[in-house]
Every structure is written in C-alpha cells, then in structure tokens.
Design a binder for these strands. Structure first.
Lengths: 223, 223
DNA sequence: TAGATTGTTAATCGATTAACAATC
DNA sequence: TAGATTGTTAATCGATTAACAATC
C-alpha cells in the first residue's frame, strides 16, 4: 500500500475487504482445489506451488500470489499442507456446504457421471437421475440412485433444493430440458450435450467441450 | 509500431510474421471453432461476434480483434458467415487434417466418448479402443470400433500414427497407461480419470474436470 | 548449516472494455 | 435510408514472469 492510498481510501475505514472475488481468481482457486482434493486422496501431505503449477498449468508465482492474498498458508522450504489448504480454499470459495444436483439422461454419459466421484468430492450430490426411455425407468444406477421419469422433475425441484442441472441428453432434447430447468428456478446449467443453448439473462450455461482442449494442444504439437 | 521498432527489427526484414500463435489466441480460436461447428449443424448461416460471445463467454470485442488479426472475415451489419469462418479458423489452427486417437477404457465413459461426435467433428478419429477386462474384449462399441486387449496397443501405435491418447480408465490404472503412451512416443494425453499424472517434459496432459467449473459457477451464484 | 520454497516486488505482456467511424 | 455490426483505437485492468530476500 502506498502512502497515497492511506489518504484516499477506496472504502470506509474499518469495513471488511471486498468479498467478491474476480472471475479469474475464483476459477483458479477452484482448479487448485480440484488438484488438492485429488492429491489428498493419493496420500500427499504437502505440496509446493511448483507442483500445483505442473498440474494446473498456472504459473507458480501466480499461485503463491493468489494464496498469499488471503493469508500465509505456506511454509518456506516446505510448501503447503494439503489438508489445511483444502479447508482454506473452501472457506474462501464458500463452497464448504452440500449442494444438490439433478442429472438428466441415463445413457453411457449420464451413468458415467452418476458413478463418478468428481462432484461428490466437492460437495455436490446427485439427488435425482431422469430419463424419458421407459426401458430405463427404475433401473438402479448406483446405491443411492435410480432412473426416474422426466415428469417427476417438478416434484423433485420442489422437495429438494436443486442448484445445478446437468444435461447428459441427446442434443435435440437439450433445449427442452434447459427450458424446464429455467422455468423451475434453476440458474446453473451444466451442458454435456453438444447443443448450443439459449437461456435468459441470469442463467449460466457451462458447456464442457473436450475437443476444444484437444484442438489447441494439437496446434502446439504441430507448430 | 513505434519509430524505434523500425530501427531495431525483431526479425530480418521481408520475413513472414510470427507463425506461432499465443496460447490464449489458440485456445480462444478453438472455442470459436467448436461453437461454429455446432452452429453449422443447427443450420445457422451467419453469426455475430455478440452471439459468439454469448456462447463462449469471451468478450465480443476480443473476438472481433482475434479474427481481424488474420483478415477481414466479417460483413458489417451482418456478421460472419459460419461456413467460411470455420474454414478460416481451421486454416489458422492448421487442424484441417485427420488425426488419430487411441482410447483407453471401455466403461460407461469410454463408450460415451467413442459414440460422441465431439472428436469426429474436428477431424479426430478414434482408431482403437482398449480395455483389460476379458468380458469386454471383442465387443462392438460402434460400427467402426471394437474393444481390443490393452496388449495390442504397441502394434496399433506402430501401424497407425497415434497423436493423442485418451484415458477413460479407473484412476488407479491411469499412470500405467500414461507411461505406456509416453514410452511409445505419444506426446498428448487427455486424462478423463481423476488421477494426477506424472509425465516427462515435452508431454502435455490435459485433465478434464467439470467439477471445477461447477465450483466457481456456484461461487458467483452464492455470492 | 545448506537447500528449498514461500511471500513479495517490479516490469512486461496480454485481456478487457468502451467507444465509434466505417460500411454492409 | 435506417439499423446493425464490423474493424480498430485507446485506456485500464489483470496475468505473467523474473528475481530475490526471508525463513523453514
């Protein structure tokens, strides 16, 4: 802080620092958290900013700075304690709680998602799996989960607080499901289908497109 | 360009401008390409920088500038022709050709990937699908593809030019497969397992982690 | 102690944004 | 023509990088 800053404070003295992270910081912290969670699973107790950089493709200086903005979490010469860094980042991102997901589509992709740990590891619980195929209805996909008819969705969204809708449906069905989600107040949609979705402002669509990463990886391979 | 730059040219006069794109530009162009490909499938003939911005979450001015750096591809008052923009970006990324992929793991995720259009749309062809489970061997997963024993991989990599290895295996098997890929000269690995992989320098690992996007989407939802 | 790694600064580079003339 | 959207500039902001003292 320069002396001038003290003369012209950005906010009233005594107030807490800005609570809202920038998109970049929030995105990077999420990536650190993903790696840390996995590192913990693999029994790693400490991790250096350089290791984090190798796994996340984020510069190690950037990582140290991102973290040091919130406190002195590391130990010089040693690195960061994995466990405690996980809790610290969860606190910063305020994602320590449990959040409910509804999953649409019980095909290969839907079942792969339902059976994966990725969401569970970060406090997201798939509470319902929907499909329209009568042959799939009632099928047990995991201990907790069986395939329910799409029509049940309204009921579910009223009973459980669904924060995210995940689409693993064929592209031609995606917009219809998205509309239904929006109509029932869901404001985050995770789109694994290839369809381009139209949603009203205030609703966020995240599209996962592995081919994109492959394209630019290939560019640097060929160039 | 400042006058000083003309006195101290970065490269010999008369040579072509730098061919290598920055990582940021290459990554963004890839995202535009993904959206354009899908827009074309949906019968869209023109698209504006604003529409591209809505779908990619990249600022529309940024998009126009990225594109105008390579030519005047748009029409004022109209937008960009989807078809011709696809060809232009492919030319820039030099990914117009066909490239071969080997896919590991024939579980739900592996079968979902094998059956998807994402890779095919961008010129990536899955030429072989491997698994170690004897019960799955020989199973037809698509018209072109049947499950082969992991041991066949060396043969395949010698016969076909495999540029990318895609891992859809359980986390405990991922490192072993990665090592085998590296040993056989594959330098791009796409990791859908949750394992953290160690690879030598020169090999690129891309890890797809949907939960990461969800985490930071949630942050802005809660904040 | 010696080696390793954090926390932090300063310089550079690239991304973002607003604004607007050009033009379809 | 009128409306829309590109191509481009300029100003600001955030990311990247190198470097290094502090310190475990």
């Amino acid at each position: 802080m320069s002396p001038l800053d003290r003369l012209t404070p950005q906010r009233p003295l005594g107030q807490v620092p800005p609570e809202r992270l920038s998109i970049g910081v929030a995105a990077r912290l999420s990536r650190y958290l993903q790696v840390l969670t996995q590192a913990r699973k693999m029994g790693k107790e400490t991790i250096s900013s350089q290791e984090l950089a190798d796994y996340t493709h984020v510069n190690s200086t950037q990582i140290r700075r991102d973290l040091s903005g919130f406190g002195k979490f590391g130990k010089r010469g040693v690195g960061y304690n994995v466990d405690s860094l996980v809790s610290q980042i969860r606190k910063i991102l305020r994602t320590a709680g449990q959040h409910n997901i509804a999953l649409f589509g019980a095909g290969n992709l839907g079942q792969a998602i339902a059976g994966s740990d990725v969401f569970a590891d970060h406090g997201f619980q798939v509470v319902a799996l929907f499909d329209t195929d009568p042959k799939k209805l009632g099928k047990k996909v995991s201990d907790q989960l069986e395939v329910r008819p799409f029509e049940d969705f309204r009921k579910v969204v009223q009973q459980e607080e669904i924060v995210v809708g995940v689409l693993a449906v064929p592209p031609e069905a995606a917009q219809e499901v998205a509309d239904e989600l929006v109509a029932n107040g869901v404001r985050i949609i995770f789109n694994y289908s290839e369809a381009l979705l139209s949603v009203p402002p205030g609703v966020t669509v995240h599209s996962s497109s592995p081919a994109v990463d492959l394209l630019y990886a290939l560019y640097f391979y060929l160039a």
